[in-house]
């Protein structure tokens, strides 16, 4: 299991990244991430939705409703232009952490280049 703090930190890039593939809704986002990480990253419902609403307040996302046969309508989220730019920023941050860690984990190269 991945610790809570790391899961919380990755919420935003995960949501933004999933939405680059087109509009989606809460349950689907959870399922997608759950599948990609083999269940290592799983959010409770009560943490996901407030974050979606927060990103919507920050205008990184926008939402629309689609009717369903039974029960209430479904709320879809999609990326805005601002959201896309924000994703680039996040991506750079995660990549720089990622590459730094990779460099450290391959000792020969690391030591040789230093």
């Amino acid at each position: 299991m991945i610790p809570k703090s790391l899961v919380a930190a990755s919420l935003k890039p995960f949501i933004l990244s999933v939405l680059t593939r087109g509009p989606s809704y809460g349950y689907e986002i959870i399922q997608r991430v759950h599948g990609l990480t083999d269940g290592d990253v799983s959010w409770t419902t009560s943490t996901l939705y407030p974050v979606l609403h927060k990103l919507e307040n920050e205008e990184l996302l926008e939402s629309f409703w689609e009717d369903v046969d039974k029960g209430p309508a479904r709320k879809y989220y999609r990326l805005t232009r601002k959201g896309l730019r924000q994703l680039e920023v996040e991506k750079q941050q995660w990549l720089s952490i990622h590459s730094a860690l990779i460099a450290l984990w391959e000792p020969e190269h690391g030591l040789a280049t230093v």
């Binding site: 409770t44 943490t47 407030p50 609403h53 919507e56």
Partner: peptide, 22 residues
């Protein structure tokens, strides 16, 4: 997966005023 009512309330509380402003 949903979590308890108070915990849901707590999470929504965080964004309540921002949502109203929006």
């Amino acid at each position: 997966h949903m979590g308890s009512n108070p915990s849901i309330d707590k999470e929504y509380q965080k964004i309540f005023w921002g949502k109203l402003r929006k």
